[in-house]
Computed example of a mutant assay.
Amino acid sequence: MEKGKGLARRWAVELHDVSSSASPAVPDPPGFTRSAPDADDAAGARQRKDSEAAWKAQKAWEVAQSPFKNLMMMGFMMWMAGSTVHLFSIGITFSALWQPISALRSVGKVFEPFKDPRVDTIAPKLLFIALNLAAMGLGVWKLNTLGLLPTNPSDWVSSLAPAPEVEYAGGGIPLI
């Protein structure tokens, strides 16, 4: 027997010629059954959209809370720098002021990936702003402890006497 003649192939697919037939419809491929869109597909799509919205909301809250970690680290670095004016403490203080300012300028860009009609980003944005303002307050407090904030009138007007010293520290053995 010749190969392919006489025996029906088990997996053979007979293709129809559309140009010669009267019906322009193409038959469905083997194993495919036409059915109307199920309610399950719509429910699955809705569930996927809801889970995506929940994921975006969760990530928005995580981004909103991220300045807290920076706040703790910056506070520790300021404490380690001490209260004397030197290059290291001024650099850390400048960084403590610059990072929140740049973060506050880019609030819209930070929360842009989470923009969705189903996700409310107002509360995370407010938390993000509040934590960055607290970080700026920490930087201003460090400026004050370093004595770099102009808090006395004599800091502004050179003709006024400087503020009196509150305490005096001296050491050594007094000479008699």
Rank of each mutant, 00 (worst) to 15 (best):
I101F: 01
K142N: 08
T151W: 04
N152A: 15
M136Y: 12
I122A: 15
S102R: 02
K109W: 05
L143K: 04
A130R: 00
F128G: 00
S83T: 13
L148S: 12
F114H: 05
S102I: 10
F94A: 14
P113W: 11
L146V: 11
W141Y: 15
L149N: 06
F94D: 13
T93M: 09
W98Y: 12
N144A: 14
S83Q: 14
P113A: 07
S106G: 10
I129K: 00
L97P: 03
F111H: 08
M136H: 07
L143C: 06
A130G: 05
P150F: 12
F88G: 12
A135D: 00
I122N: 10
S89Q: 10
K109A: 11
I92N: 01
A135V: 03
N132C: 07
R118M: 02
T151N: 14
D116L: 07
S89L: 07
D116G: 10
G139W: 05
P150K: 14
V119E: 08
A130C: 01
K115N: 02
R105S: 08
S106I: 15
L126C: 15
R105Y: 02
I92R: 00
F88K: 11
F88Y: 11
F128Q: 03
T84E: 15
L87D: 14
S102W: 04
V107K: 05
L146C: 11
K109G: 04
S89Y: 05
V140L: 02
L127M: 09
F88C: 12
W98Q: 13
E112K: 07
L126E: 12
L149M: 14
V140R: 01
K142A: 09
L104C: 01
N144Q: 07
D116C: 09
L143S: 02
K115G: 03
A96I: 12
R118A: 07
D120E: 11
S106C: 14
N132E: 00
S89D: 12
I90E: 15
M136L: 14
E112Q: 06
F114S: 01
P100W: 00
V85H: 13
V85M: 13
G91N: 04
A134P: 04
N132G: 10
N152E: 15
W141M: 11
H86M: 07
A96M: 07
G108W: 15
K125M: 03
S83H: 12
L149I: 09
L97K: 05
P150H: 12
E112F: 03
W141R: 03
N132S: 07
S102G: 08
L87Q: 14
V107C: 04
W98R: 15
I90W: 10
F88V: 14
G108Y: 15
L104T: 01
N144V: 09
I101M: 05
D120A: 15
P150R: 11
N144I: 13
G108E: 13
S106R: 09
N144G: 11
A96E: 09
L146W: 08
K125D: 01
T121V: 02
K115L: 06
S83F: 11
K109L: 03
H86Q: 07
V119P: 04
S102E: 10
M136R: 08
S89E: 13
A103V: 03
L97M: 05
L104W: 00
A130T: 03
I90Y: 11
G147K: 06
G139E: 05
G139F: 04
F114A: 03
L127D: 04
G108D: 12
N132T: 15
A123H: 08
T151E: 13
Q99K: 05
A130V: 00
